Computed example of a mutant assay.
Amino acid sequence: MAKRKKRKINVFRLFILGLICVLLIFLLGFGIKKILFSSKETPIIKEEKYDEIVQAGFTIEEAKELASLSNYWPSRLERYAAYTKADTLEQRVMEVNCDMDLEPYAQTTIVEDDTDVTYLVNKFYALPDGYVPDDLVGLDVFACVQGQDYSCQDVDVIQLRKEVYDAYIKWCKAAEKENIEIRAIAGYRSYEYQKGLWDYNAQIHGQEYADSYYARPGQSEHNTGLAVDITFNGYNFNEIENYDGYEWILENAHKYGFILRYPEDKVDVTRYGYESWHFRYVGKDVATKIYENNWTLEEYYGAKEEA
């Protein structure tokens, strides 16, 4: 009886051992299949979306980085590939989005919608021929006086769009409390007025100078009614950055929806010379975002997703 019992125990052990072997073979086979198919085939499928970027001349690593940027604009892929002045891909994307890869006036996009006060007007974005804002308001306070104030715009009355007018008045009243008397020396300009300015400066100083400091007609922010040139406390407008009070103006403009449009350290972005007197209305939220990020309006748009 003892020998039979021992034989049954050995058979049972063999049965358990067999089950373990079958299980191991199954698991091993499943693992090999996963390695062969999952680890090799799946990435190939996932990386197909980078093919177009790679074909443009980028490595697969660069393609992944490029596609991960929130402000990557697929429509400008070829321009990203051709632009080599930037040190990083992130910088390259921003600079191309700001049209820094193009020569001024190389191409022009016509702005059709003026309801969004943040819209771009520069050497690449122009207003339609004959554009005139339909909500212009004359400044009867906080404006220069012809014959008294230096470089006062030669018009009967300086005008701004209504929303800009309201914000400008609030800004000036706040400045008054700091003993800063802001005065507008220029606001809205007609197409003909801007053409006369550009033509005159091009004739006297040359086209390069005119293009650096005076926008061509239809491509001037003054044509929008959203920009205002200022002085304060009777100083010459082109020297205001040298006087006490200007720092307050810079640090508080965004609270009323204004930005310094052509900063000294952003000439390569805006394509205009430094203008300490030129402020553009974009609304409080956008102005604050631009101020906090030390952007220009071009960079604000360059940081956004493609429209």
Rank of each mutant, 00 (worst) to 15 (best):
E41Y: 09
T42S: 12
T42K: 14
T42W: 13
P43V: 15
P43D: 15
I44E: 14
I44M: 14
I45W: 12
I45A: 10
E47Y: 14
K49N: 00
Y50G: 02
Y50W: 07
Y50D: 06
D51Q: 15
E52S: 05
I53M: 01
I53Q: 01
Q55E: 15
A56I: 08
A56D: 06
G57Q: 05
F58T: 02
F58A: 05
T59F: 02
T59P: 05
I60Q: 06
E61W: 00
E61A: 12
A63Q: 09
E65Y: 05
E65H: 09
L66P: 00
A67I: 00
A67H: 03
S68K: 07
L69R: 03
N71L: 03
Y72E: 11
Y72R: 12
W73H: 14
P74S: 12
S75P: 03
L77Q: 08
E78V: 11
E78W: 10
Y80Q: 08
A81V: 06
A81Y: 05
A82C: 11
Y83V: 06
T84P: 00
K85Y: 09
K85H: 08
D87Y: 01
L89D: 00
L89Y: 00
E90P: 03
R92Q: 08
R92F: 01
M94C: 00
M94D: 02
E95W: 02
E95N: 02
V96S: 03
V96M: 04
D99R: 08
M100C: 12
D101W: 00
D101S: 04
L102S: 05
L102G: 01
E103F: 07
P104N: 08
P104I: 10
Y105F: 10
Y105C: 06
Y105K: 06
A106T: 05
I110Y: 09
I110A: 10
V111S: 02
E112N: 13
D113R: 06
D113Q: 04
D114H: 13
D114G: 11
T118P: 05
L120C: 03
N122G: 01
K123I: 08
A126P: 07
A126T: 10
A126M: 08
A126Q: 10
L127M: 13
P128V: 15
D129A: 14
G130I: 10
P133F: 13
D135L: 06
D140W: 10
F142E: 11
F142W: 15
F142S: 09
F142V: 11
A143S: 14
A143Y: 11
C144H: 13
C144G: 14
V145W: 15
V145T: 15
Q146N: 14
Q146E: 15
D149M: 09
Y150W: 11
C152M: 10
Q153E: 14
D154V: 04
